[in-house]
Amino acid sequence: MDQTHARALEALQPFVHLANSNSATSPRYVANIITNATSNPHTYVFAELLETETVQALASPDTPAEYQGYLKLLQIFAWGTWQEYQATPNLPKLSSEQTLKLRLLSLLSLAATAESLTYPALTNVLSFSSTAELESLVTTAVYENLISARLSPATTPPNVNVTAVAPLRDVQPQSLPNMISLLTEWETRCGEVVSDLEAEIERVKSNASARHAKEQAYQKRLEEAIEQRKATGNSSNNTFSGGPSWGKQSSFGRQAPGRWGSGGGLGGNKREADDIDRDDGFWESGEGDDSGSRMDLDEGPASRGGNAVRTSV
């Protein structure tokens, strides 16, 4: 609840208790309660006081004529305006405090219907004789936290720009059916908006789920392709990892070239391999003379003349 409204309700409670007390039996006493309640600077709502039996009893034909107008006066303070007070005959005369209060309440009703109020319109509606009186009333309303507004006297026409209004006017009973209808229509629109939002949320969730499933399928295919590529690479490495096999061990501690494997090379021609074994100038260890392997080396040009000198190694 708004703090200003809560303070106004709290300020009204003493008058409600007086109206419900056993001493509130005479119209004069009840009229005095209404006068004090409407004059109090902190009371701005009056519906609870209006609902008391003693106040409603003022509408009885047995009530003296001088006090019958107090019920209507309290109703005007609850939801009426200054213009309504002036247009209604046989109402009690207002004190200065009541006059200020009713004008402030009328300003609240006017501010609730329009954001910009011109000086000429407000001066006419509130029966002011000068703009200074109007500006004083607006300033009081601002300091009492009844409205948030800015005076603009230099504009054409000069106006009061209202930005916020305190919820301090009571609701007239006759307006309740219309308010209920408006609220019901608003509730229906809110329900439609909520349904649209829920449908949109489900659509977004469905799209997100489909997108997630698509990403998972793509990731799975990618991992399968990587595994297949690795398997193909390992198979290729195994095919070429053999290389040439080497033949007999020479007397120098190294292997002499022998036959190649199935990949080709010298192993494909047996005659060439035999020639290499026969003409390489080496003997295997344990064959020939006891000195082991040896090789005859030509001594250069002397071998061309036919009388080659051979040196045994």
Rank of each mutant, 00 (worst) to 15 (best):
D298Q: 00
S245D: 09
E284N: 09
K270P: 05
D298P: 04
D289F: 12
L297E: 08
E299A: 01
L266S: 14
G267M: 02
S262A: 11
S262D: 08
G281L: 04
F240I: 14
G242F: 00
Q255A: 08
R271M: 09
F252W: 03
F282N: 03
E299S: 09
D274Q: 15
R271T: 15
G258P: 07
W260G: 15
S241H: 02
L297V: 15
L266N: 08
S303T: 12
P244V: 11
Q255W: 01
F282T: 08
S291T: 14
D290N: 12
L297M: 08
S262E: 10
W283V: 09
G306W: 06
S262H: 03
M295C: 11
G306M: 06
K270N: 10
D298V: 00
S251P: 11
D290R: 10
G261T: 14
G286P: 04
N307C: 06
G242D: 07
D277F: 00
G265D: 11
G268C: 01
F282D: 05
G267A: 06
L297F: 06
T239K: 07
A302Y: 05
G267R: 02
G300R: 01
S236E: 05
S235K: 12
A273L: 15
S262P: 10
D275H: 11
N234T: 11
Q249V: 13
W246E: 02
N237I: 15
K270A: 12
G300P: 02
S236C: 00
G306S: 13
S235Q: 12
L266I: 13
S251T: 13
G258I: 05
L297P: 00
S251Q: 11
G264H: 08
N269L: 01
T232P: 00
R259Y: 03
G268R: 10
D275P: 00
T239W: 01
